[in-house]
Amino acid sequence: MTGKLAIEAKGLTKSYKIGKIKQPVLKEVNFTAYHGQVTMVMGPSGSGKSTLIAALSGLMKPDEGEVIALGESLWKKKKAKIDQFRLDHCGFIFQGFNLFPALNATQQVEQVLKYCKVKKGEAKKRAVQALTEVGLDKRLKQTPSALSGGEKQRVAIARALSKNPQLLFADEPTSALDSVSGQVVIKLLHRAAKEHGAAVIVVTHDPRLEAYADRVIHMEDGQILSDTFVNRPEDVPPSAPHA
């Protein structure tokens, strides 16, 4: 699966209304991402990168344009079908970790698996496995209040990875973390791409993360300024970065 096209967006346009003024945030953006690759979207605040992944992941409908995710046209689906698509295929990691304060690390992961119709015993096994993979095998029973920021983000990653998503979206996953924790987190995202074959799309303005990217896209003012492959998938010709 590695190297195959996972997501393709054409002509994405989105503007927000602020008062009576229409403020464009995405201007006819074309975008692709491949399985087994970490695609990093970089750019200053307000460049439209968060809106881009919201549109790519089915969280926010663009005004115009099309998103083909895993071969399906995302925005032609009904709302419930989009939810189901995300449940089946998408993982998310946010800047804030968004863990339920009442649940311990294992329960956080199990909670999501429950909705994926995974049986109880199997969910527990997969939760422990996912937490072990992110190095939290000693912290299975801790609630968020007993975990450091880095550990919380690792729980959030385990929660996202436990579903075996084919698309993994991360929005500023390291910006609330110190550099060591940040390194651990980006390595985990990198591994998700390489070992699980997920298409990992990371929005960040942390330049330290570039070292782990297979491809770096720079955005500004709602447009893609540059698109550079560090490792080009085999079937992508050098002349056509946007497929």
């Binding site: 939810d83 449940l87 998310f92 968004n98 863990l99 339920f100 304060p101 999501v112």
Partner: peptide, 15 residues
């Protein structure tokens, strides 16, 4: 806890 609920929504848990 709205953010936590929103993160479940993002992961595809229905309303």
């Amino acid at each position: 806890n709205i953010k936590e609920f929103a993160s479940l929504r993002a992961l595809g848990v229905s309303m």
